[in-house]
């Protein structure tokens, strides 16, 4: 546990030391700011909700989250510091978990930046706090799952940019084209595609609906890719 915390603290320190961390946060806040403007959230007479902003957010996250997680493990390989970690008394799982948690915390801090819009809404209207809460819960769960996937792609390459792109493309496929893919399929296949449709799961959260199915989907995805990451890291020892 102590080991995991030590790794997490060091990783957070590095995330906040590197310019990439700030570029990512600035990019995310800029884009969500533009959405707030485009969605005309603060126009008089509109419902006091951020729902339309939240509808856009997952599309941005497919690009932003791999950028947060890309350096987690690949940078250790590039600089050779992985050797000092893997010969220290901590398990590969503790190392991966510490790094993952650091990226999740970084993501949560970034997400918290958008709370300011909720505050503004609360000043001039009565936002639906329950629905807002479930939206944020949904985005947090997406973060847990996507960061785990990003950590996994980061373990595949010693090049950060490769890790970013390899992490980004499947997520974009999942999110950007999900409605298109669902529309093109039918029958049992359509059922399966709908179950892994991130946008559909998030839509439920935005409507204030927290289902076990969605919880299991996101947490299961996170657990699966963390497990896969540990296996990749372990397998690199043999090469």
């Amino acid at each position: 546990m102590r080991n995991t915390v030590a790794i997490m603290q060091r990783e957070l320190l590095s995330l906040f030391f590197s310019p990439i961390g700030y570029v990512v946060i600035a990019g995310f806040l800029l884009l969500t700011g533009v959405f707030v403007l485009v969605a005309e959230v603060f126009e008089p007479g509109k419902p006091a909700t951020l729902r339309r902003v939240f509808d856009f957010t997952p599309y941005v996250l497919t690009i932003i989250i791999p950028a947060i997680s890309m350096r987690l493990i690949s940078e250790e390989y590039r600089s050779g510091t992985i050797e000092t970690l893997m010969t220290a008394p901590l398990s590969d799982f503790q190392m991966v978990l510490g790094k993952y948690l650091a990226a999740v915390i970084f993501y949560a801090i970034m997400l918290a930046g958008t709370l300011v819009y909720l505050v503004v809404l609360a000043m001039y209207g009565q936002p639906d706090y329950g629905a807002s809460f479930s939206s944020y819960l949904g985005l947090l769960l997406v973060g847990l799952a996507f960061v785990a996937f990003g950590t996994f792609t980061s373990s595949l390459s010693s090049n950060q940019v490769v890790a970013w792109i390899v992490g980004m493309i499947p997520l974009m496929l999942f999110v950007w084209f999900s409605s298109f893919i669902v529309g093109k399929t039918s029958g049992a296949l359509r059922d399966i595609v709908q179950r892994v449709n991130v946008v559909r799961h998030l839509d439920q959260f935005n409507r204030g609906l927290v289902t076990t199915e969605s919880l299991v989907f996101f947490l299961g995805m996170a657990a699966f890719f963390l497990f896969a990451t540990v296996k990749v890291v372990e397998s690199k020892r043999w090469r």
């Binding site: 060091r10 320190l13 600089s79 050797e83």
Partner: peptide, 9 residues
């Protein structure tokens, strides 16, 4: 280790 890998930041 060889070449002393460290975190420059």
């Amino acid at each position: 280790p060889e070449l002393t890998p460290l975190y420059p930041e």
